[in-house]
Every structure is written in C-alpha cells, then in structure tokens.
Design a protein around this nucleic acid. Sequence first.
DNA 1: GAGGCCGTTGTAATCGATTACATTGGACTC
DNA 2: GAGTCCAATGTAATCGATTACAACGGCCTC
Lengths: 349, 349
Amino acid sequence: MSRPETGGRRKPAKIADVARIAEVSVATVSRTLANPEVVAEETRKRVLAAVTATGYTPNLAGRALRARRSMLALVVVPDLANPFFPEVLRGVDETLSAAGYGIIIANLDNSAEKESRYVDLACAGQVDGVLLLCGHVIRGRVRDLRASGLPIVAACERIDGEDIPQVEVDNEDAAARAVAHLIDLGHRRIGYIAGPERNVLDRDRRKGFGRALRAARLDPRKAPAFAGDFTFRAGERAARDWLAMPDATRPSAIFAANDEMAIGFVKTARAAGARVPDDVSIVGFDGIEFADYCEPTLTTIYQPRRDIGATAAALLIAAMTSPKPPSPRFERIATRLMLRDSTAAAPKR
Amino acid sequence: MSRPETGGRRKPAKIADVARIAEVSVATVSRTLANPEVVAEETRKRVLAAVTATGYTPNLAGRALRARRSMLALVVVPDLANPFFPEVLRGVDETLSAAGYGIIIANLDNSAEKESRYVDLACAGQVDGVLLLCGHVIRGRVRDLRASGLPIVAACERIDGEDIPQVEVDNEDAAARAVAHLIDLGHRRIGYIAGPERNVLDRDRRKGFGRALRAARLDPRKAPAFAGDFTFRAGERAARDWLAMPDATRPSAIFAANDEMAIGFVKTARAAGARVPDDVSIVGFDGIEFADYCEPTLTTIYQPRRDIGATAAALLIAAMTSPKPPSPRFERIATRLMLRDSTAAAPKR
DNA sequence: GAGGCCGTTGTAATCGATTACATTGGACTC
DNA sequence: GAGTCCAATGTAATCGATTACAACGGCCTC
C-alpha cells in the first residue's frame, strides 16, 4: 500500500494510463472492463493488474457523455422534514441502487426558484429519469419537463391529467374506512381536520370522509371541518377551535387528514382537560412510527411507505430501461386500518 | 408555443444547433451564456433568441467532463429513516443549492456493499465533494476515498484521527448539563440508556454522564447502564429492565442517549403503571420534534440540526472552492437544554 | 497453397461543452 | 497612410470514455 502524496489533489488515473501500463490500447482496457469475455485471458490479467496498480475508476462524466446516460435519477420531494418521506425514499433508494442508479434528491421546500432549477437540471440530461413525490409536474421558468421526453413517474400524490405512471394508495377508500370505524363505534357527530387547500390528498380523504357519512345517513355538509396543513400546529389550532364549540355541536370524534395533525389535536385537547378517547375519539392517516408512541397510541390508516417508494422506483426503472413506451400504468398499494387506543365507543349523551 | 412531437424522445438541442440558428460559432454561444459582456449586444440578442427558440440547456455531462467539476456533492447518511437527519439535510440542501450545487444522497443503511459503491461513485469524479454524516470515512473495497483527494467534511458524528473539517456539538458537555439538571432536582440514582456500542456519540455522552456524576461525588461505576441502539424499541427494552429492578436500586432518573429511546422508555414504563416524572424523571438528547408531542413532553438537549447541516455545507463549499488547502477546521454548534415535563424533583424516600 | 474465418487487438470517430489561440476588421495615432 | 490596438468572433484542441470499423495473424479447409 503506497501512501498518496500529501498536499494537492491527486490526479485520478485515466484509461490511457492503464492502457500504457498494461501495454495495450484504450479500447482493450474498456473492453476488459465491460466485456471481459472478448479479451484474451492473458491480456485481461495484465489489464486488471494495471487497473489495481493505478486505482483506476472510469470517469462517469466521460461515460455519461458518450453513453448518453448518467445512471442517476432525480427524486423530487416537497419537504424532506416531513416524516412521511424518509421511509418512502428508503424504498426508492433500495430499488434504484440495486439497479445501479444513484439518486439526486430535489427538496422543493415550496420554492418556485428551486423547482425551476431542478427542471433545468433534469432537462440538461444529467439524469435518466424523474420520480415525483410532490403532487405536480415540476415547472421551470423556461424549460418544460414534459417536453424533455424524460421518463417520469409519480407517487404518493396523484397528478391528475398527466399520462404518466403513478403509484398511490386509495386515499378516498381508506378515509372512508377510517370514518366508518368511528361510525361503528356509535359516533354521529364527526369532525374533519383538513390538509392544505386544493391538495389532492385532502380532496380524496375529504371525499372518503363524506362518503362514509352518507353511507350512515349523516349529512357531510353539517360535519364540522377544521382547516389544516398537515402540521402539528394545525392540529393544535383545530383542538382550540374544537374546545371552543358549544357542547351541543362539538364532535365526539375526529378524522384527521394525517397523523401529525391528529397528534397535535390530542396534545392540546388533553392539555385543556379533554380525555381521549373517552371524550373524543380520533383517527389519523399515514401510520408514521410515532403514532404508536404518543399518548394514547393513535388509531390510524397505515400506508406502507417503503413499498410505495420501491414500487415507484421499479416503474421508473422500467420506463428508463425500455426503449419506447412510457405507457401510463397505475399501481395501487393497499393500506391498513390500525386500531389503537385513540378511538372508543361514543359517550352516551 | 409549439407542442413537442408526441411519441419517442425528443433530442435536446445542443450548442451546435443554437450556433447554426444564430449564425455564429459554438464558441460565441458558449461565451454568450458564460460571459455575456464579451459578446456584442446585437450578437447576444441573436444567440439568446436562438437559445429560447431551441429550448437549449447545456448538457451537464459535457460540461462536467470539460470543466472537471460536476457541481454535485455526495452526502452520506447512515440511515434516512432516522428522524434526526432530514432536518440536517435540509440545512445542507439550503446552503449547497444556494451555491448552485446538487446533492446526491448516499443512504448507507448498514450495507458495506453500498458503502463501497458510493466510494466508487465519489472516486469516479462524479462529485466535487463529500459530506459525511455517518461517523466514519466510508471505505471502498478497492478505492480509497481519502486518497482521491476529494474535499471531505464531516458532521454530526465526529471522526477521530482524520484531519478533515468537522462540525459537531459538544456531546460530552451537553450530556453533563442534562445529568446535572437531574442531580439538581435531587436525584442520586441515575441510569443511562446507551447508544450503539463503539458509537462516538454514545462514548461522548456517556463521558458527560460520568463527569456530571463525579462532580456530585457520585460513582459512575455504580450507575446502572441499559444497552441501546437509538431506537424506540431499545427504550422499551430498557424500561422493562428498569421495571424488573428491585426498589432499592432502581434509578429515580434516566438519561437517554437520544430522544427516541427516552420516548420508548416512557411508553413502556407508563404502560406498567409507573408515573413520569413522579416515579421516574427522564432526559433525552437531540430535541426531535416529537419530543414536544409525547406525554409527558420530554426534557431534552436540543441540537440545532439545520444549523449543523448548513455549517457543514458551508465548510464543504469552502473546501470545494478554494484551490488548495483543506485546512482542518472544527466548528462547534451550541446546544440547549429544553426543560419540559418529563423531569421533576426526586421522590422522597 | 490460396482463401476464408475468427479471435484478438488497435485506430480513430464520437458524445457536447469549454477555451487557448488565431483571425478579422475597424478606430485611432502619429 | 502605415502601424497599433482592441473588440468581436471563429477554429480547433481538449476533457475521458465507448465503440464501429479495420487490421492482423493463425488455423482450417479444399
């Protein structure tokens, strides 16, 4: 083991260096690495020895330029700090990296400027495909991602009106099951803590909420809705509004469009003396890990986030690999209602 | 706006296309984009018009090859699903992307094979720098990251014996403050829930734990330690062990090496009838968001994770930008003890 | 022994951008 | 009017790999 010279950056060996040392042409070196079977045994040994001697690694920029593929995928996340995504990313990572792809993470953070930059990046041919977890096709100021012809797959948040492969759970149906559970427990006055306005997840879950109510001959229009945005804080605000309601109209059960809001609600409601689930039952959505560690543990719809990521990645690989048709294919992932301690029979009135 | 032809991938325009349309040479196009001031007003207008007309974006592989820099950084995370990291990544992302860098995320997930692949990726000149959040210099089977001469910065987990810039909090000191807080409350029998063995964070926090005990003339060797690994489950196991201890030796306070274990401990202890903080006080470490939403809210050491990420990214940018010296520079980020409801005066015996 | 085949290797074009150097032509100076 | 300078632009080398095509030589066959 020879120590690298100290100070200054060491120039990495290139294919020509290897070729010189092995006393062959660059073509032979390249072949030895890509198609070992076509070079003679003896030559192969010489080349491999030279490779180890020089510590040669093919320069990916050169390869990407020539081969017209970078083996990188762009994964667009609306907000990395949201505990929902890391587990999805894990599934994505597992699948993509098993297939030899690297991942560039695009964290939008609600910045149109970043969004535009990532569109440029994608259109610059630096990535072989784009995985959207953000509910819309990212838009650039000048460039258009769709027009680039890059393979695109969407997951987590459905994108309406685009014919791209998508992976999602049946949010409407899952929400309906959650609410039906509350109805089965005898609750008749059920409130909804909403996601951000115009968010597709909110729309679907709200629809499921309404559907379940109607199925029980309850009027969704009379059901109280609390504005929200998927954050703990929103749940806390909803709880304050809930506490301020007169007893006659205050819901005995709440369906929150995600777990964090449900947990925020519980915290503030309990702090004000309300008992959960005795005074109010609550169901969340997502099944984040913490939902099993809050007090009381949270009944929720579990989404297999890792599977979602893995499935989406598989679709993307298919799209990047197959030569032609990005035939839009939809994958549905099943959810599960996890019964825990935040729901109980409606109090007798 | 002309619609892209449907079906088949559209070939992106290249610099030669722009040059042809603008009736100039490729050099002029390149200059117009990189140094607009050196081309004549009139020419510049023609070129820019041609750029918009063709929707031209420079191919990054070509640029990276020629310019010998990819404007990408590799960020190595031990485990994306750990809620500690996303917020760090956010800080990293903000700073790096403001400087025009993209981020490739390397999620190690405890796989030596992945680790080796990422070393290869880095050594292949595909990235301009490496940010390690994983406590060790990643090792390849063949390639050596240190020998590549790439700028490297470490954060979150100190890496001993390597002269690279690092960003960290004073874990020992913070732990000592946490434990001193328990001692101030009158606790004399204090337990420690540990991190993974040989983990540098565990070592430092354990040292701080011992230091605070000794400062109060207590013997650290007599303090019960519970094995752990930073997960909820580990906290639950510790609680079961704690519950099984005889009253005479059972600690009245616990310092957990991170918040998740503290929360897991509380869950299981309470489920068995123990009251927190009346029967047992507990302090965590990290200050993850959940720590303020569990029951009771958790007293903990808050680490400004976003700052850590941003600072590390800034050091990396400095290293990638400056031509020569990767002079090892250490940055210390201050922590804060957040007093909440999981700690109270020791019960009278 | 000439021709053909095939396994092995080399030569050189190519991917798309950047940039050192060369060239052009107009303005200005003496 | 010749010479100088400079702004503007073009020509072509270059980054490092892949790969089509060509070349070479040995062996087999008829």
